[in-house]
């Protein structure tokens, strides 16, 4: 007999508990979103530059871009975070915690975006450049008005993939003691000796990635007007 009311009681208790968790987790979400937004805004233009570097006519610039991509993609982001925050002060370069995160994340993601954009730019037919040239367009105009819009459309699915990965990668900032969503959940989990906060954090991540997936889908649809 008591089981139903017991179940009800347990459910209410759980709900109350989750509600009590929300403020702490929300402040974690704020940090997660901050890292996410800054990284996205910085790394995408940087990625375009990296792609242009990779495709540069100057051999030295191509080499440098290649080296950069190799180093950044070839080492874990966690290590890069540690290196920038703890390593660079050894040679006198000191960044704050959040700036270190921003630098490591945007440098890291710029390399990935750079490779995606490079593929996108390389996939554009030479004829597009020649047509623009015959129409008197400058290099800059050609890139911004003709090439880039087509590259954006072609690379959007791959970029979307990285965006979702980025949401989850933000959890790595724990190594610098920043309490993003996952760490906020861990604090609660250790205090209350339960897994529930981690489950709630998981739901938060799903909501975040769900929203971004939707946004990116709409962008893809917006670009679907041709071909």
């Amino acid at each position: 007999m008591g089981t139903i009311s017991e179940l009800m009681g347990n459910t209410v208790e759980l709900l109350n508990y989750v509600l009590a968790l929300l403020p702490a987790l929300m402040s974690g979400v704020v940090i997660t979103l901050k890292v996410f937004a800054f990284t996205l805004v910085l790394s995408i233009p940087m990625g375009i530059l990296v792609a242009l570097g990779r495709l540069s006519r100057l051999r030295i610039i191509r080499r440098l871009a290649q080296l950069y991509i190799w180093v950044v993609r070839g080492t874990p982001l966690l290590l890069q975070l540690i290196f920038i925050f703890f390593g660079l002060p050894m040679i006198g370069i000191v960044f704050s915690r959040f700036n270190s995160v921003m630098i490591a994340f945007s440098l890291n993601y710029a390399a990935y975006y750079g490779e995606i954009f490079r593929g996108g730019i390389a996939s554009i037919d030479r004829g597009q450049y020649e047509a623009a040239e015959m129409l008197g367009m400058s290099k800059r105009q050609t890139f911004l008005r003709v090439i880039l819009p087509q590259v954006i459309k072609r690379t959007l699915p791959a970029v979307a993939n990285e965006v979702i990965t980025l949401v989850k990668d933000t959890s790595l900032v724990y190594i610098l003691g920043l309490s993003e969503l996952l760490r906020a959940a861990k604090i609660a989990a250790n205090r209350d000796v339960t897994l529930a906060p981690l489950v709630v954090a998981g739901v938060f991540y799903l909501i975040l990635t769900g929203v971004f997936t939707k946004v990116l889908q709409q962008m893809e649809e917006r670009y679907a007007y041709y071909e």
Binding site: G127, E130, A131, G136, Y226
Partner: peptide
């Protein structure tokens, strides 16, 4: 000089977007 020369490419090279 190029301004005085127009070109219609074999596969036209229109801008698809």
């Amino acid at each position: 000089v190029r301004q005085k020369v127009g070109m219609v490419f074999q596969n036209f090279n229109l801008f698809p977007h």
